[in-house]
Computed example of a mutant assay.
Amino acid sequence: MNSTTISGIKESRLHIPKHFTIVLLISVILLILCVVASLAFGSRIVGVSHVLDGLFHADINSYEANVVRKRISRTLFSLLCGAALGVSGALMQAVTRNPIADPSILGVNTGASLFVVCGIAFFNISTANEYIPLALVGAALTALFVFGIGSMGRSGATPLKLVLAGAATSAALSSLVMAIMIPQSHVMDQFRFWQVGSVGSGNWSSISTFLPFLLIGIIIALISSPALNALALGDEVASGLGVRTGVLRLTAALGAVLLCGAATALAGPIGFIGLLSTHVMRLLLGPDLRFVIPMSAIAGAVILTVSDVSGRIIGSPGELEVGVVTAFIGAPILILLTMKSKVRSL
């Protein structure tokens, strides 16, 4: 039975990719292991039995069980931010047809950072609820600017031009961030902890603030995925199939900005999650975004949580912020992907 998407495409029955069940099962197992590791490791390591006590036995009031309960909000926040960044990366790669698109590579995170530091310096903002609108506006304007610059010329928005435009924009905005921050010591003190990228400040308040943006962004991504599959064939083919390419790009980009902007506002600019999670799932499942997008959410949650746990283990008894860990892992992989793909379009 055929169903009609909002883009006007007639979709035939869903073809499940080969090995999808195996990939899903392994991903869920890894997700569970990440949750257990995140609850167990920190400045004090607790055993699996204490993790289970903290989760399922409210009557147990031991020190270890209380430690586990305090780590639940951080773990959930890490999972949600990773899922948001994973889906955002998948949307950005689909919209730009750029296999190495990522919020950090295209300068979107830096745009959010600039607006946040301006808010701290000029409007004395200090809470997550105040960071979010500024980060969303900064991310959206930067995405539009980079895509506009990358679209100039006869060949349009090629992957190479988008990456170069993103790199140049990110460098320019980073200079503006430093110019605003350095003369004002109170701004530097407040901003530098946020700028590194960390999920350590995740609490139930930030989770409740983040959830609406996450849900809206993921709904947009899932609804847009069939039309984005057609867009991968080229604008002319997609238009022939009934896709309104301009509306589709705007809608999908809005979903990507909501996801990465809200995550950046609350956790700081964490890079490479969208790049890594989407590439892993596309490698395992193929190009169908109806499967790649939801599985990128799981992969992003796993990668970010593993990075957070690794930072706690490496930096023990303190911790190494997750933004540093993801950059350390992601930068070499980005170089390898660039060399392998030669920055070809999807």
Rank of each mutant, 00 (worst) to 15 (best):
L173Q: 07
S174M: 15
S175I: 14
S175Y: 13
S175Q: 14
S175M: 14
S175L: 12
V177Q: 08
M178S: 14
M178C: 00
I180R: 10
I180D: 07
I180E: 10
I180K: 12
M181T: 15
M181F: 02
I182G: 04
I182L: 13
I182D: 05
P183K: 12
Q184G: 00
Q184R: 14
Q184N: 15
S185E: 15
S185H: 13
S185L: 12
H186W: 12
H186N: 12
H186C: 01
H186D: 09
V187K: 09
V187E: 09
V187T: 15
V187W: 06
M188T: 13
D189E: 13
D189M: 10
D189C: 02
Q190C: 00
Q190R: 11
Q190W: 00
F191K: 11
R192Y: 06
F193K: 12
F193N: 01
F193D: 05
F193W: 12
W194G: 03
W194C: 04
Q195S: 13
G197F: 04
G197Y: 07
S198M: 05
S198C: 08
S198G: 05
V199S: 03
G200A: 13
G200W: 07
S201V: 03
S201A: 12
G202V: 11
G202L: 06
G202P: 07
N203C: 05
N203W: 02
N203A: 07
W204T: 15
W204F: 06
W204H: 06
S205N: 13
S205Y: 11
S206F: 02
S206H: 09
S206R: 14
I207H: 09
I207M: 08
S208M: 11
S208I: 14
S208G: 08
T209C: 02
T209D: 09
T209S: 08
F210I: 11
L211H: 05
L211E: 09
P212M: 10
P212K: 10
L214T: 12
L214Q: 01
L214C: 10
L214K: 03
L215N: 03
L215I: 15
L215C: 12
L215H: 01
I216K: 04
G217Q: 08
G217E: 11
G217M: 11
G217W: 02
I218G: 02
I218V: 15
I218Y: 07
I218S: 00
I219A: 13
I219F: 08
I219Y: 08
I220Q: 02
I220Y: 05
A221V: 10
L222R: 04
I223M: 09
I223W: 04
I223E: 04
I223P: 00
I223R: 07
I223G: 01
S224V: 10
S225G: 05
S225I: 13
S225A: 15
P226N: 06
A227T: 04
A227Y: 01
N229I: 05
N229C: 02
A230E: 03
A230N: 03
A230H: 02
L231G: 02
A232C: 01
L233W: 00
L233Q: 07
L233G: 02
G234F: 05
G234D: 10
G234E: 06
G234L: 06
D235A: 02
E236N: 08
V237S: 05
V237L: 03
A238Y: 00
S239H: 11
S239P: 00
G240L: 04
L241Q: 01
L241V: 10
L241C: 06
G242S: 08
G242K: 04
G242H: 02
V243F: 01
R244A: 08
R244L: 06
T245V: 15
G246V: 03
G246M: 02
